[in-house]
Design a protein around this nucleic acid. Structure first.
Length: 406
RNA sequence: GGGGAGAUUCCCGAGCGGUCAAAGGGAGCAGACUGUAAAUCUGCCGGCGAAGCCUUCGGAGGUUCGAAUCCUCCUCUCCCCA
């Protein structure tokens, strides 16, 4: 692939390529380039936000470059105090190891992991003496650190910034020094750290890395960046049905962004579709269905994508009958004794795991969310005769089919 | 080192010594509506088979018939001065 072709592919979806001239020169070397990417081993489930990053790496991998996942095991064991999650638990070496393995297993859905390398920053950070740390710290200033938005805002709002946090960009930058990275990729939230790395690399007499930042994908709420703590993720390990429903719940405004970042749809086609949405010739609902199918096809299969769409229609089309509900129900095993006599509706919902507490069960009944074999139950004192195959539904999304336990 | 401010339910935030399971907002959940799990409107939003009771307002003690509210000590955060 020619240098210009590579550059064009690299630019797809990217917010910033720093610095394009330098990158062109590196690509022109015509050999595999070391690419550093910080692996987020802290979250057990990768989501589409991670996928945006991983897909960019896959592109680079396909161009023949060498991807290195950097696991911040050293830093994870110290604990990351960044911003809101100050009580993030410190991880043991074993936990970090396990997380990294889980990350790699999921990343394999996107990348060729046989051709990727996993590194742990304890390898070099663990060797450093305090003198080395002071040497490192001497290469940066507080004023530069406070240029970072997050710090500037918190400083202005009198919110805490620990000294450790100021050290983090330096540590990350030093990782680039240690790896002698040619290119680093990451989210736009890493821009500051990436620039810091370039400065540090120069200071250590290395050629500064180029970097590519990708947008942070908004989650299912449509506003906030996708993240586990916000509960707005679409996970790679979500079932096809879950993926479909979650994609359908995205606001229409995110359609083209998702197509660009989460699918292989050609950019010219995305532009066309965007115009179609604007002038009304493209139906957003239909396009969203297509988006959902493509995403599921990518991570599961085309067949599962079709099945997920069918299930979605069963759940949401009006006049859904019991036999259809049956198809989307989760099996719930109940002990044989509850089949003997009528069971209190609230207890049944709890037993099926459809609600967390009896109070929640009562509320669901009161609000008309509960259906037994398709029949709405609105009396919270109701007794239900439990039988094999009974369909118990709470709202549209929680459906159980009773199975007698042997 | 000195002085000041603060810590409230998932998050932000209001709380007069009794009427506080604790205002309001956000998130979440449900119902209606919809191409959609979007938007909008409405309701719910600690737990208990619901009567009343139990646990909750940084931690530990104390005052009081009664404490999220008062006192003491402790932990943590922020500000000002040195």
């Amino acid at each position: 692939m020619s240098v210009e072709d590579q550059l064009e592919l690299i630019r797809r979806g990217a917010v910033l390529v720093e610095n394009e001239e330098e990158l062109r020169a590196k690509l022109a070397l015509g050999r595999p380039l070391r690419i550093k990417h910080g692996a987020d081993a802290s979250s057990p489930r990768l989501h589409l936000g991670h996928a945006v990053q991983l897909r960019k790496l896959r592109q680079l991998q396909e161009m023949g470059h060498e991807v290195i996942f950097l696991v911040g095991d050293f830093t994870a064991r110290i604990g990351d105090p960044s911003g809101k999650s100050q009580t993030r638990p410190l991880l043991s070496a074993e936990q970090v190891e396990a997380n990294a393995a889980r990350f790699a297993a999921q990343a394999a859905k996107i990348l060729d992991m046989d051709r990727a390398r996993v590194e742990f920053n304890s390898r070099w950070l663990g060797q450093m003496t305090f003198a080395d740390v002071i040497n490192l710290a001497s290469r940066a200033t507080v004023a530069r650190m406070l240029e970072r938005d997050d710090f500037a805002i918190r400083f202005a709002e009198n919110r805490p910034i620990s000294v450790l946090e100021l050290l983090y960009p330096l540590v990350q930058g030093y990782d680039s020094v240690a790896l002698e990275a040619y290119i680093e990729t990451g989210g736009t939230d890493q821009t500051f750290n990436f620039y810091q790395a370039r400065t540090l690399m120069r200071s250590y007499g290395l050629e500064p890395q180029c970097f590519i930042t990708m947008p942070l994908l908004e989650g299912t709420d449509g506003h906030e960046k996708m993240g586990k703590s916000l509960g707005n993720t679409i996970d790679l390990l979500d079932t096809p049905a879950e993926k479909f429903g979650k994609v359908m719940s995205l606001p229409d405004t995110l359609l083209t962004k998702y197509l660009l970042l989460c699918t292989d749809t050609p950019e010219v086609e995305i532009e066309e579709l965007g115009r179609g949405l604007a002038d009304g010739t493209v139906h957003p609902g239909q396009l969203k269905r297509r988006l959902a199918r493509e995403i599921i096809t990518l991570y599961d299969s085309a067949e599962e994508a079709r099945e997920a769409e069918r299930e979605f229609d069963i759940r949401h089309k009006p006049g859904t009958d019991v036999s259809a509900l049956e198809r989307v129900a989760e099996e719930v095993r109940l002990p044989a004794r509850v089949f003997a006599e009528p069971m209190w509706i609230v207890g049944l919902l709890s037993a099926c795991g459809l609600v967390k507490t009896n109070s929640e069960a009562r509320r669901m009944v009161q609000q008309g969310a509960v259906r037994i074999d398709g029949e709405r139950v609105e009396d919270e004192a109701a007794e239900v005769l439990v039988r094999e195959g009974l369909i118990v539904a709470v709202g549209k999304r929680r459906v159980a089919r009773i199975v007698r336990e042997a």
